[in-house]
Amino acid sequence: MTTVEHPIECWLTDMDGVLVHEGHALPGAADFIAALKRADRPFLVLTNNSIFTARDLRARLAASGIDVPEEAIWTSALATAQFLQQQVPGGRAYAIGEAGLTTALHDVGYTMTDSDPDYVVLGETRTYSFEAITRAIRLIEGGARFIATNPDPTGPSVDGPLPATGAVAALITRATGREPYFVGKPNPMMFRSALNRIEAHSETTAMVGDRMDTDVVAGIEAGLRTFLVLTGSTRAEDVDRFPFRPSQVVPSIADLVGLV
């Protein structure tokens, strides 16, 4: 375990694989969130999922027994909208995605258009349209800048993996020769925007995640203390394959309740 000079005052945590799995709360998840609230610790639940609004995700977590306030949920769609608002305030976007993305863009003053947008913004949807992808390709070739909410190539479903934002972004890149700028994990920008949202400092903030290649690496690059839980994607035997290490590996988030 890495020696840390500063106490942990704020927490960031991933959602899928840390708090929930396939709609069910993981052991200790509800207790961990309750402990954060009792201790009045600033915290955010982070997710690369851009399909749902924060209100939707709050309801889904509540259904599994985890009580997270809407304002404590930070999605890649919200981070993307904030980034675009900072880059081109009041801009125009052609968006491929669900309500989580379009609502976030509207809320920062963006106008949705399929004619001469500043940006093509690609998010996740369960119903990718060939026509929409074709329009995106033509707009990018016409000069629109290409943004994607996250690089995840697949998403989970009860029937198995589904193609997600990263896979469709690769298709558009192959057709246009233009790489998107990915805002979500593992881009540490999403972590820095989260820190700013709760007025936290990196040296006193910890990140809890289940993936070495997104949660942990982005946390390290953002200067956070990192905890890897083994209830999601990364297995214990996989950790040594990476050229970086988390501050600590624990079986589940239940093992972190005492640190709050």
Rank of each mutant, 00 (worst) to 15 (best):
D56N: 15
D56I: 06
G177A: 04
G232V: 02
F242G: 12
D238I: 04
D67K: 12
T53M: 09
T165I: 09
D114C: 08
P188E: 07
R235Q: 14
I140L: 09
R178Q: 14
G17V: 06
I8E: 00
H24R: 15
Y110H: 05
I33W: 09
M1L: 12
P180E: 06
E221S: 13
T165V: 15
T176A: 12
E199D: 15
F182R: 05
D118Q: 10
L139F: 06
Q85I: 04
H201Q: 15
T47H: 03
A72K: 11
L105W: 00
C10F: 03
G258M: 10
M212A: 10
Q85L: 05
L228T: 00
A59H: 14
Y181V: 15
F146L: 10
Q248K: 15
N196K: 13
S193D: 12
A167P: 06
T75I: 01
L171E: 01
I140M: 11
D159C: 07
M189E: 14
L171D: 03
V216Q: 11
H6S: 13
G155H: 11
V158N: 13
T154N: 09
L46D: 01
I147A: 09
D31Y: 01
G91T: 00
G223H: 06
L171M: 14
Y119L: 04
E5M: 12
L44P: 04
I73R: 01
L19C: 03
Q86H: 12
T214R: 09
M15D: 00
T125F: 00
A218F: 03
E221I: 06
E5N: 14
K185D: 02
P7G: 01
L57K: 10
E70Q: 14
T103C: 10
M189Y: 12
R197T: 14
S202L: 02
A59P: 01
F83N: 05
R235M: 13
I33L: 12
I33P: 08
P151T: 05
S129E: 00
R178P: 04
T113M: 11
S50M: 03
A77H: 01
I220K: 11
N196T: 13
L19W: 08
R174P: 00
S252W: 04
G223F: 03
D56G: 05
I51W: 04
P156H: 11
M112N: 07
T2S: 13
K37I: 14
D114W: 05
A132T: 06
M189G: 00
T113F: 11
A77V: 05
V108G: 06
A99Q: 13
T3S: 13
I198W: 09
A222L: 06
